[in-house]
Write a protein that binds this DNA or RNA. Structure first.
Lengths: 127, 127
DNA sequence: TAGTATATGTCATGTTAGCTAACATGTCAA
DNA sequence: TTGACATGTTAGCTAACATGACATATACTA
């Protein structure tokens, strides 16, 4: 499609991007340093931004204003590019562990002797 | 399904959750304060955690260790619950704006007079 | 009923993320 | 070649985040 290359075409200089986004050059470099944007470069190493880059920068600006930090933004960007990551961390407790815990809980509740299992450091069962 | 209610059944006390997660009570309350977990309560206002809550807490622990802050975690949790949000912020620049910018750029490049449009604060066109 | 665990609130604190300022050097259009 | 603009780097500020620590009150448990 035609719009596509337009959006990804690097044609904007640092100067104009600053005005478009309201960000300082230092801020923009900072975000690049943290791999949130990857503007193209001219022969002489000067940055050339695409319109997609502008979108990204405005997103960053928004999220930072919301209180999300760089690390968080990075995570979110990764999730957007790879929606599979959405489900990774869930189900941290396996069904076997689940059964064990429930069983223990039941036994403990039954004999009203709440000190046994809880004394030990259960966190070793996870991670 | 049977596993479902088990996982969402609130049956764990603060004490045991601390051991399961390795988090302090203060930390857990802090996360609840910021609406990252919503444990059930007993009559006497004491927290009762489900196994899903444990999962959530372990996720929080992981992400914090990665450097993501509370605000970021909140965002990510919201994205997981509502994948539609994934696409919200993109396409910040409308096609009309896009065309305008490209046109200006072309004209400017053409007459090699790079001062005109760039003088003004273009950021007013956005947000 | 005593004793332990939890709730809630407030005050305090270390760490560090995000940023600004400033410099010396390098690029680029006219 | 000249002057505006960009570059990478260093140093340092500041505000806020995530916890700790404490005090008091209420809830469980034996």
């Amino acid at each position: 499609m035609e719009k596509e290359w337009r959006r990804s075409m690097p044609l904007l200089s640092m100067n104009i991007v600053m005005q478009l986004t309201g960000l300082t050059a230092r801020q923009i470099r900072y975000y690049e340093e943290h791999e949130l944007v990857q503007p193209a470069r001219t022969e002489g190493k000067q940055r050339m931004f695409s319109l997609d880059d502008i979108d990204t920068l405005l997103e960053i600006k928004d999220m930072l204003a919301t209180g999300v930090n760089i690390a968080g933004i990075k995570q979110i960007f990764e999730m957007k590019n790879n929606p599979a990551l959405k489900n990774d961390a869930k189900q941290v407790i396996t069904d076997a562990q689940l059964r064990a815990i429930v069983k223990e809980e039941m036994q403990i509740a039954q004999r009203h002797q709440r000190a046994s299992l809880r004394q030990g450091d259960l966190s070793r069962f996870f991670r």
